[in-house]
């Protein structure tokens, strides 16, 4: 990042039926993190809304990403048991072209998290 490469992180959110595990709803959020050398700050850009926030340390960016608010529209869902799954992954395809081949071949560039699941229930 200190060499001017912006990283794009993608957050996949899925809601699946608790029994059949069929996909009920899904959402993808993308964030770009870039470094500003002049002020030595990090910027987190929500690519969907274009909202920019600035942080003096990377850990603040991470903390912000770990504290996201997700709003899912539950109205089309019938009452029952559901499962919310999320994961975060580094979008290697958005890296600069010369880096794409090494990023695809090198294990060091694989920073995809596993799916994290939260079961929840919608009551009638």
């Amino acid at each position: 990042m200190r060499n001017g490469v912006a990283l794009v992180l993608r957050l996949d959110v899925e809601v699946r039926d608790g029994r059949s595990l069929t996909l009920v709803a899904e959402e993808e959020r993308a964030f770009e993190i870039r470094y500003l050398p002049m002020s030595e700050h990090f910027q987190l850009v929500d690519l969907a809304s274009g909202e920019v926030s600035t942080y003096p340390r990377m850990r603040h960016v991470m903390a912000e990403l770990g504290n996201l608010r997700l709003a899912l529209d539950a109205s089309p869902m019938a009452p029952g048991q559901y499962e919310l799954r999320t994961r975060m992954r580094l979008d290697r395809a958005s890296l600069p072209a010369p880096m794409q081949l090494p990023s695809f071949l090198s294990r060091a560039w694989r920073h995809d998290s596993d799916w994290t699941q939260w079961p929840f229930r919608i009551n009638a």
């Binding site: 001017g4 600069p96 090494p102």
Partner: peptide, 25 residues
């Protein structure tokens, strides 16, 4: 001015950083 310097500096660093990858490609 600072934006310009920053952008140019970044562009340069970016390219310099990607030099090896560029060569490989």
């Amino acid at each position: 001015l600072t934006s310009s310097i920053e952008a140019e500096y970044f562009r340069y660093r970016n390219v310099a950083f990607l030099r090896d990858s560029l060569k490989q490609s």
